[in-house]
């Protein structure tokens, strides 16, 4: 499987990774090489095989519904690049985003 420049651009946008000019080709080439190795998975017959999401069987592990203290607001915000009146601040949202 080889990746096209368009696919690289699409994937980079899905992942919100900005690309520098020229990087589409670079990543298309590198990712294609990795996928060429990964494509050997197709050789394996997995028709009757269940997928494994987690190997270790731990059973249903649930939490009792008990409230615990939250972080003080100032501790919650302390690592933020920008805050205002107790809120995190982000730049304008443009709905035309893909």
């Amino acid at each position: 499987m080889t990746l096209t420049r368009d696919e690289v651009r699409h994937v980079a946008m899905l992942a919100r990774l900005g690309l520098e000019p020229g990087e589409e080709d670079f990543y298309a080439e590198q990712l294609s090489a990795i996928l060429a190795h990964i494509d050997r998975l197709r050789e394996v017959d997995t028709d009757a095989i269940e997928p494994t999401a987690q190997v270790v069987q731990v059973g249903s592990r649930l939490r009792e519904d008990l409230p615990e203290p939250s972080l003080p607001q100032e501790r919650a915000l302390t690592n933020a690049p920008e805050t205002k009146d107790g809120f995190f601040v982000v730049k304008a949202i443009q709905e035309s985003e893909p």
Binding site: D85, F87, F88, V89, V90, K91, A92, I93, Q94, E95
Partner: peptide
């Protein structure tokens, strides 16, 4: 409005 604001505030 959402579309014209220059910034938004996030409350989690």
């Amino acid at each position: 409005a959402l579309e014209t604001a220059s910034e938004s505030l996030v409350d989690l």
